[in-house]
């Protein structure tokens, strides 16, 4: 067993520098690496390119890094619900690359799986396809999309072990397993960190080979964006 455990988020993010490209897991605020984001906010590195499905809200998630003008470019599929984001984008301070959600997921997966590029029908005939190679397969046009590259991937899991094996909970899984595969250095934060052998091999979602560092996160807020309930 190769031990991947580090003490905390500060050790987890060791080596990050200005102008790097990061992947950050999560859908909305569900399954985001809260501890890593806080640590990145604290050390104040700048010029970052962040690949993340969303950009958080004004005062939580990636919104915290936007507040400090740490992000130069966002690569996302949906960025509503964030006024500061909109302001920075419209004023030209922030570069934004919007790409279809399935393409975003597959570009992460491809990066981790040694697939440099692939064809997808998503976005054909739209502004997303501008400048991209088009090929017809089975009578249907597809556009060429490339795998991402990322210096670090920051992911959040429910449980993990010393070997870096991860188990996710509910829909907090989302982009996390794909980004874990794709980062040159993948840093996983978990709610529960257990010794190797305690997680059943049948139940592992992300094998530890994809994870370089793992730590037990603290003070999870796990904010809910749209609290919707029904009457009893």
């Amino acid at each position: 067993m190769i031990n991947k455990v580090v003490a905390n988020a500060e050790e987890g993010i060791a080596g990050v520098k200005d102008n790097m490209t990061f992947m950050l897991g999560g859908f909305g605020l569900s399954g985001i690496p809260e501890n890593a984001i806080s640590a990145l906010q604290k050390i104040g590195i700048k010029g970052l390119t962040c690949i993340s499905n969303n950009a958080g809200v004004d005062d939580f998630g990636l919104g915290l890094l936007l507040q400090g003008h740490q992000i130069k470019k966002m690569i996302s599929s949906y960025v509503g619900e964030n006024d500061e984001f909109e302001r920075q984008m419209l004023s030209g301070e922030l570069e934004v690359d919007l790409i279809p959600q399935g393409t975003l997921a597959e570009r992460c997966r491809a990066a981790g799986a040694g697939i440099p590029a692939f064809f997808t029908p998503a976005g054909y005939g739209t502004e997303v396809a501008e400048g991209k190679e088009v090929r017809i397969f089975n009578g249907k046009p597809h556009i060429l999309e490339h795998a991402f590259e990322a210096d670090y991937a920051f992911v959040k899991a429910w449980k993990g072990d010393e070997a870096g094996n991860l188990i996710f909970k509910g829909t907090a899984r989302n982009f996390n397993p794909l980004m874990a595969m794709a980062g040159k250095i993948t840093v996983a934060e978990v709610e529960e960190l257990v010794p190797a052998g305690e997680l059943h091999p049948n139940e592992i979602h992300t094998p530890g080979i994809f994870v370089q560092r793992i730590f037990k996160g603290t003070n999870y807020e796990k904010r809910i964006e749209q609290r919707t309930v029904r009457q009893r």
Partner: peptide, 21 residues
């Protein structure tokens, strides 16, 4: 399934509209 009853919302269980489900 449908929205949860009040008090049973789970931040790890949402739909694509980010609503608790």
């Amino acid at each position: 399934g449908p929205f949860p009853f009040e008090g049973e919302e789970d931040p790890d269980l949402i739909n694509a509209g980010k609503q608790t489900i």
